[in-house]
């Protein structure tokens, strides 16, 4: 009886695993099949490096370079702000903070992670956009900068949480050894603990990149969404928002081109995932030594 149950359960778990694989396969195949025709029709160079997107014009143009550059700049900007803040927060919480503070801040960070992106967008739209307009004396505050700030806040939890886990996992004896040799507390944490947790912290950063590049809703509400080449104070459109804003009414080649944009985004995400695997694998090797 027990053996039968064992087999049934094994089959069930296998099935669950297969469902996941099937989903990934179906999505990949579907995206490639529906994304490639438009790229072929428009021409890969014209599509990827064209600087004008006018999908419903009399003479439609489908150049997505503005979206690609905006996504790259936006993600890079978010990393530039989010990583230092997240990194130092993680070091403080893991090594220096008293137990009470660690608990409270840790709770707040996980709360930050569970706020829906539309709420980030709404707060950005009602608070951040007018603020940017006032501070920089602009006609309008919806801009790449607003999107970068919103994204930076959104990626904080993944950076902080993953980094804390990595820092907590550094063997106590490393730190004890450094302290015993006469290193100060700060020297110990930044010269011993952080290097030991390097791969974990990097993983957090890569996760943050993934979240930033895939975000659509919050960005759509603060970036202005006009397909301009990216400027810090200008209205911009990300790869994600380009798909999301036009999909509901799109038809014909326009719709196919939107699938092609999604395919480009998918390739970006795949590359980030590969990078993540590489970082994690590298980390495991150093730990074994």
């Amino acid at each position: 009886m027990g053996k039968v149950m064992d087999r049934v359960m094994r089959g069930f778990f296998l099935l669950c695993g297969l469902v996941t694989i099937a989903c990934v396969l179906v999505i990949t195949i579907y995206l490639i099949l529906s994304g490639l025709p438009a790229i072929a029709e428009i021409g890969p160079v014209k599509f990827l490096f064209g600087t004008t997107w006018a999908s419903t014009a009399q003479d439609p143009k489908y150049g997505i370079l503005p979206f690609i550059l905006t996504s790259i700049y936006g993600t890079f900007g978010a990393i530039l702000i989010g990583v230092p803040v997240g990194f130092f927060t993680a070091v403080y919480l893991s090594k220096l903070a008293p137990e009470g503070v660690k608990k409270v801040v840790g709770f707040v960070v996980s709360l930050l992670a569970s706020i829906p992106s539309v709420v980030y967008g709404l707060v950005g739209m009602l608070f951040l956009v007018p603020l940017i307009r006032k501070v920089f004396h602009l006609a309008d505050g919806a801009s790449l900068l607003a999107a970068i700030i919103v994204l930076a806040i959104m990626i904080l939890p993944s950076i902080i949480n993953v980094s804390i886990t990595a820092l907590d996992a550094v063997p106590k004896k490393y730190e004890m050894g450094a302290l015993a040799l006469g290193a100060t507390e700060y020297e110990t944490y930044f010269r011993v603990s952080v290097p030991a947790a390097k791969s974990g912290i990097m993983a957090g950063v890569v996760l943050g990149v993934g979240r930033a590049i895939g975000e659509a809703m919050a960005v759509m509400m603060v970036a202005g969404n006009v397909a301009n080449m990216p400027k810090l104070f200008g209205s911009v459109c990300f790869l994600t928002t380009a798909v999301a804003k036009e999909m509901s009414y799109a038809s014909g080649l326009q719709k196919q081109a939107l699938f092609s944009i999604a395919l480009v985004l998918f390739v970006f995400i795949m590359l980030i995932n590969l990078a993540l695997r590489k970082v994690m694998a590298g980390g495991e090797k150093t730990n074994e030594k």
């Binding site: 006018a54 014009a57 009399q58 006609a139 309008d140 919806a142 759509m220 509400m221 202005g224 969404n225 006009v226 209205s235 459109c237 999301a244 804003k245 509901s248």
Partner: peptide, 16 residues
């Protein structure tokens, strides 16, 4: 103004 609009923001709903 078809195909000639110079917009600062392109929004996706009336409410926005």
């Amino acid at each position: 103004t078809k195909d000639a609009c110079v917009l600062r923001q392109e929004l996706t709903s009336t409410g926005d």
